[in-house]
Design a protein around this nucleic acid. Structure first.
Lengths: 337, 337
DNA sequence: TGTGGTTACGAAATCGTTTTTTTGATGGGG
DNA sequence: CCCCATCAAAAAAACGATTTCGTAACCACA
């Protein structure tokens, strides 16, 4: 392995000078810098991240804590798009990323312990369950932390603009004449609460009455569950004319049940999703949905994390809200005729 | 920060003894081990990965090189499922994972340089483009490497059983009476070549003649492209009765075109996909496809990588083939009646 | 000539571990 | 009673970088 010492010897100077030259310290002559750069390139010198981390106690890497409720893990398009954006921006900012877990071989760590072990400069958290005490422990452990899709523990957060998103959808279906609107929401977390609140409020503003049985708790990314709920909704005495699903995948479960019942979308019942994943745009009828800007959310998470690291004690956590975009499809019938 | 030295002082022994005790070295008395463990737990001692890595030159982390041709990055279900399996198994084996990239802030590295910088113990490569000279450089740089979906450079590899997979599909549609079968394959790489080969061979074995224009090069995960090809296929003088798509997502593009043309699946034209992603099972008609065991492929990649690390110079690369499973759907019409 | 300020570099300490080598104590065998 | 093995622990030397100081050389100015 070619070390800084090797470069130094070859240059006839000390390791200190090489380090300074390569890191752009001011007190190295310009010729020396050039010479050192040349020799370093010639020998193929690559610094050793571990040594650097040990000395500077900065690793230039972010941890990513990701956890959700199904077995699919990262395989939700929304999450993977976010991860993509996060990774890209983190790399631009000079950080590698790795996953923070609770296990390493037969060592079991808490998230906080793992973070301490690897000495991540910052940690992004995206989880369905912010109630987990280990998550709290991590946030309170002192590492810069940014949460996604939830305001939590006073650290920075990146949120999707669920209020406006739901409002836009309500506006849209209301504009097309719908008054009997059902809302299936995901499990009880901040995203669900915000969406339900926004739904109720914008319906109230428009004088639309939402009977209790139109507001149902389901789960995110659970087509079967949403299908079942859809069945119940359509069996009501006065069934809704339009159903809001917690996400696009759940809509597919609903669609399946609707089809089984011999009905069709949007002729017999209208539907809207949430997320705007690609596949929902590939099928017919094209789903009316609200595209969340997952990529940007990921990128902003990296951005905020890097700011937290950079500003250290002066860091003032920000609450970053990312707007989505209504994607009109073919699943909402115009009732105004 | 509570270091090994702090634990040592508190125990009235030397750092060396603490290290040995915690790592299960044989020459520490049992009482001492117990005492040290207790004190370590009490003080909340967590070792410093960087220091350990510096000394042992093992990082206990795997690099993952991932690259594909669209902007979606990880957001292909197949890849993210694989990543999931890889991550899970790697953690069980005692490895963290992080991504290997070509950029860190304003430093541009080659993959090999990045790997050297972070000193990954092993690297998993999954890319659409094994022609990239940087990939070759990485494989030849000496780090243990395992490739996915391609045999490359003599290192270990994990492959999907594309031969059997395509054969199964051919058997299936042949069994249902199809003789005019078109095959859209992905860009020219090992997966495509193997699939095309298997397709041609199993057709030949069954005496099915495949005219040149039935074998078309498309791209993976490209619904629009596949749609266009579908249009051309159906415009042929004798159009195919069944179309093989390079993957499930591409099928959706085809389906769209078919529908636009006023035709329907499977009444007018049959179709099969490849991958077995969840969404293709949620829509109607349910896609007939070949599910690749992406999770297991990921897990086996971690396994093989860990073996490579463990066995060092004695390591003999393995070629691991993971079988898939035919998922009969509703997109292939029975022509035998 | 003496003083003071720059500039360019080196020496050495240090980060927190692991690992090899030494040391010291103990006990058993001849 | 001496020698040698055995065992437990300590001492010390790394691993490869960064960073703080110190200092030599040089120049300018009074």
């Amino acid at each position: 392995m070619v070390t800084i010492k090797a470069v130094a010897e070859r240059c006839g100077c000390s390791p200190a000078t090489v380090s300074k030259a390569l890191n752009g310290a001011p007190d190295v002559s310009h010729e020396m810098v050039l010479k050192i750069r040349a020799v370093a390139a010639e020998l193929g010198y690559i610094p050793n991240a571990a040594a650097r981390a040990l000395k500077t106690s900065r690793t230039y890497s972010f941890g990513l804590l990701f956890r959700e409720n199904s077995k699919k893990g990262l395989a939700h398009e929304f999450f993977s798009l976010m991860l993509n954006g996060f990774k890209r921006r983190a790399e631009e900012l000079g950080y590698d990323i790795s996953f923070v877990s609770r296990r390493l071989g037969d060592q079991y760590y808490t998230y906080a312990e793992h973070a301490k072990y690897r000495h991540f400069d910052g940690i992004a958290i995206i989880t369905i369950d912010y109630e987990d005490p280990q998550v709290r422990e991590l946030v309170e452990s002192g590492v810069p932390t940014v949460t996604v899709d939830e305001e939590f523990g006073g650290c920075g957060c990146v949120l999707s603009d669920n209020v406006q998103g739901v409002r836009d959808l309500v506006d849209y279906v209301y504009g097309l004449g719908h008054r009997r609107i059902a809302f299936i929401h995901g499990e009880d977390n901040m995203v669900s609460r915000v969406r339900v609140g926004a739904f109720q409020e914008s319906c109230r503003e428009r004088g639309v009455d939402i009977p209790e049985e139109y507001l149902v708790e389901g789960r995110f990314h659970d087509p079967d569950g949403s299908g079942e709920i859809t069945r119940q909704l359509l069996a009501l005495e006065t069934p809704p004319t339009c159903i809001f699903y917690p996400d696009d995948v759940s809509y597919l479960g609903g669609l399946q049940v609707i089809t089984e019942m011999g009905l069709s979308v949007p002729e017999d019942v209208s539907a809207v999703g949430y997320d705007g994943i690609g596949l929902a745009q590939q099928i017919r009828p094209r789903l009316t949905t609200l595209r969340q800007n997952a990529d940007l959310m990921g990128a902003q998470t990296a951005e905020e994390l890097s700011r937290a690291v950079r500003e250290g004690r002066d860091y003032l956590p920000k609450r970053i809200v990312i707007p989505g975009k209504l994607i009109p499809g073919e699943t909402v019938k115009d009732l105004r005729t």
